[in-house]
Design a binder for these strands. Structure first.
Lengths: 161, 161
DNA sequence: TATTGTTATACTCTATAACTATA
DNA sequence: TATAGTTATAGAGTATAACAATA
């Protein structure tokens, strides 16, 4: 029949799981492009955000939260320290640990990062009405909760340089 | 105030873009775990599915569709050919091109792959009612269309081994 | 001369594990 | 002896580009 192409099986576009993977990779890539304009990688942006929420953690703890080995965290943090965005402070009680926190400059960049994130959100969701946008966030949160994903952190940071 | 933690900014959980990236990475990882039980990587599964939909393409064309360089496609297809899942045939008209297609064994594995994909879909969406599930698919497709993503193919295959 | 498929090489990224200092 | 941080190294994965066959 000549209608074969028109009657494509729905699975050819994928179910929700496929669409999530496809759109997730797309959104992550677009975000990477945007933060590159601030000379940041998504992982670096994630660390800045994490330090704003939870300052004073040791490098080892932060490495765990971001899902990367400590050996990789060191040069990763080095880059941000050299740019004056974060600082390492010896913890008075235990001089082995280096507690990390944002500098004033780091907090300024974080503010610009939030602007970028808002623009990114609008870009990705421009197909939806405000109501649908909220509807989508609600559905996605339900899934994320049920799948026991940690709010605000995702392991994709491991791979997306 | 002690209510600070309760009044967390919504952005701490991320908007839709962040949730998509987070859930997308999660769904992709779960899918990778599942297809590993069939001794396949997600990229290999993607090629099998692609060959079922569109048999007879040249390796170069397939490499383009999957977003990988031709040099990488060769050993990638080698593995599947050695397992007897796909076969290369010289195209009669132009003996430079190797047209790829599924073997019978490849089609059998593809059937098992579809079962795995259905289980994966149910797993990821178990937090939602059937109605909500369809609602989510509708919203995601609208976004995917507007963002001009190719149905059925996603570039995450480049990275997810 | 151009194109398909293939191979070789050089480069990036990563994790493992050795090492230093503090405890 | 154990742990935080750091450094070194070896391995995997990748893309670029050279190559052979066919057009």
């Amino acid at each position: 029949m000549s209608t074969e192409r028109e009657n494509e099986h729905p699975a050819s576009r994928g179910g929700a799981a496929f669409l999530l993977a496809q759109l997730g990779a797309h959104a992550a890539q677009r975000f990477a492009d945007r933060v590159a304009e601030l000379d940041l990688t998504p992982a670096q942006a994630g660390l800045l955000r994490l330090l704003a929420q939870a300052p004073g953690h040791s490098q080892r703890e932060l490495a765990d939260m971001l899902g990367m080995p400590p050996s990789r965290f060191v040069p990763f943090a080095d880059g941000l320290q050299e740019r004056g965005l974060i600082e390492r402070r010896r913890k008075p009680g235990d001089r082995r640990v280096h507690a990390l926190r944002l500098t004033d400059e780091g907090m300024e960049l974080l503010a610009r990062l939030r602007t970028v994130a808002r623009a990114h959100e609008e870009d990705v969701c421009q197909a939806l009405s405000p109501d649908e946008h909220q509807q989508l966030i609600g559905l996605l949160r339900r899934i994320a909760d049920q799948q026991q994903l940690t709010p605000g952190v995702h392991v994709g940071y491991r791979r997306l340089r």
